[in-house]
Amino acid sequence: MFEVSLSASYGKRKILDGVQFSLTGGITALLGRNGCGKSTLLNCIAGVLPYTGSVKLNGDVLDGLPARERAKRIGILPQILPSPDLPAEEVVSFGRSPFSTRLSKDEKENVLSVMQKLGIEALRERRVSTLSGGERQKVFFAMLLVQDTPLVLLDEPTTYMDLPFKSVFFDVLKELAGKGKTVILVSHDLSDGMQAADHVLLLEDGGISFAGTRAECLEGEVVERAFGARRYTAEGVVLFR
């Protein structure tokens, strides 16, 4: 069980005002208009930004935990990714840094198998600074998988992904949810967000204005109301425009 009750401000401007929700695993799409505070919420949960209130995971209060302990429980793929001048394999292996100072043989094998699973083993020796936006996104997604935390936060993860990789990506997310992990996905692409999600949270005016299953969200036409988007179906896939 993942429970959140928090507020956050940038200076005097309150961005999140009493955001409350609880999740019991699965994939959750966090939706909201530009600038409503989705990324701020993910960063607060990850402990990157300060907040007031509390974040609990499986009964443990995470507020005030040392960064390393929090990192063992929460992994985040930020919207803006860096371009370190380091080989991709080394960056992926950084995912284990909250757990071990030196990678064990098993951990090294896991790094390689995750890279193979995402189809980026050929990038092992390539410097991340020389990769394309999509390749970088894959490398940092691999790092997140190697971190292997019970709570996974993804901020606009599909921005640079091509179609073939999107399908791999959503399969991996479903696999994570199947293992009992909680995945929260922020996507500006409503179709992407809605396709994969079991649950939907809508962030409006600094708080959660809707929390429910994907079916409830679509039946209640919440998204249409919130975004002014029109829903239509193409070959069983829900799309918005």
Partner: peptide
């Protein structure tokens, strides 16, 4: 990796 990722990695 920048402040966000460094912090999220402990």
């Amino acid at each position: 990796l920048g402040d966000t990722l460094a912090q999220s990695l402990g």
